[in-house]
Simulated assay, not measured.
Amino acid sequence: MMKLGFDGKVALVTGAGSGIGAAVSRQLAEEGAEVVVADLNGDAAQTVAAEIRSLGGQAQHIAVDVSDPDAVERLVQFVIDRCGALHLAVNNAGTDGVRKATADYPLDEWHKLLNVNLNGVFYCMKHEIAAMVQNGGGSIVNMSSILGCVGLPTASAYTAAKHGVVGLTKVAAIEYARMGVRINAVGPGWIETPLLLDHSDTVSTRRMVALQPMARRGTPQEVSALVCFLLSEQASFISGSYHLVDGAYTAH
């Protein structure tokens, strides 16, 4: 197994209380990083951090609402105060929102979803990048989706936010490339996470999964493998790009 070389690195993962975020946190810790496990659900974050420590890894936890810019600023300061620096970040926190056709989409739900899935990524990047520049560089992975490049009926807010995450990633990668900060986006497809399982019985979800060429859903660990590679120095010339983990779904 290729070693990714995270010894001595400090990593922040948002939305890390379950699913992909939890898988990424575990793998980062296994590879030697000290991980700050952040989630809106503080109890879930605590559980993941405790599991990592029980296996010999280094982890701390914190509850955070990434849609609150002040809370995000405090989050990054927490990482620096507790761990001394920030080298790696995975902006994974997100929500899926209601399923409505565009003209029927409730305004309050639109703003709520974009505040988490797009604004939250921006808030995190704003403070993470500043910390990494001071530290001489770092690496960020933003969690987009297959809906960062294709559409899904009744998911206008989610699709708009995930397209926006890809755009933010590209711009920031250009801006900070010469300062040693690499920034990439990952687009998971139909992955076995709480978000998908919550909608597993909806007609649109059943149709989309049925179109999956590999005839199965992906796992959080399969997404984590790519995320951790992109964070590592093995990917030292990869920045500003958007990588799909979708079992050929978007190849249709």
Rank of each mutant, 00 (worst) to 15 (best):
M1T: 13
G5Q: 06
G5E: 02
D7H: 13
G8E: 04
V13M: 07
G15T: 10
G17H: 10
G17D: 11
S18Y: 14
G19T: 06
G21N: 04
A22N: 07
A23G: 02
A23I: 13
V24G: 04
S25A: 14
Q27K: 11
Q27W: 09
A29D: 00
A29N: 07
A29T: 03
E31T: 00
E31L: 01
A33H: 07
V37F: 07
V37Y: 07
N41H: 10
N41M: 11
N41E: 08
D43E: 15
D43C: 12
A44F: 10
Q46L: 14
V48E: 08
E51S: 15
R53P: 08
L55K: 15
G56I: 01
G57M: 00
G57N: 02
Q58T: 14
A59E: 05
Q60L: 15
Q60G: 15
H61R: 14
A63M: 11
P69T: 02
A71Q: 11
E73L: 12
V76M: 07
F78W: 12
C83S: 12
C83M: 12
G84C: 06
A85S: 15
A89P: 09
V90F: 14
N92D: 13
R99T: 12
A103G: 15
A103Q: 09
D104A: 12
L107R: 15
L107D: 15
W110G: 06
H111L: 14
K112P: 11
K112T: 13
V116H: 14
N117H: 13
V121I: 14
V121A: 10
F122G: 09
K126D: 05
K126A: 04
I129D: 03
A131G: 04
A131V: 01
A131R: 07
G136E: 03
G136Q: 07
G137P: 05
G137V: 00
I140S: 03
M143K: 14
I146W: 04
I146H: 02
L147K: 02
G148Q: 02
C149I: 15
G151L: 00
S156N: 06
A157Q: 08
A160R: 14
V165F: 02
V166Y: 00
L168H: 02
T169V: 05
A177I: 01
R178A: 13
G180K: 01
R182C: 04
I183E: 04
V186G: 08
G187Q: 00
P188G: 04
G189Y: 03
I191Q: 00
E192C: 08
E192Q: 13
T193E: 07
L197F: 11
V203W: 01
R206P: 01
A210V: 01
R217Y: 03
G218N: 03
T219V: 01
P220K: 08
P220Y: 06
A225I: 06
L226G: 10
C228Y: 08
L231R: 04
L231S: 08
E233S: 05
F237Y: 14
I238L: 14
G240Y: 04
H243Y: 13
V245Y: 09
D246Y: 07
D246S: 09
G247R: 06
Y249T: 07
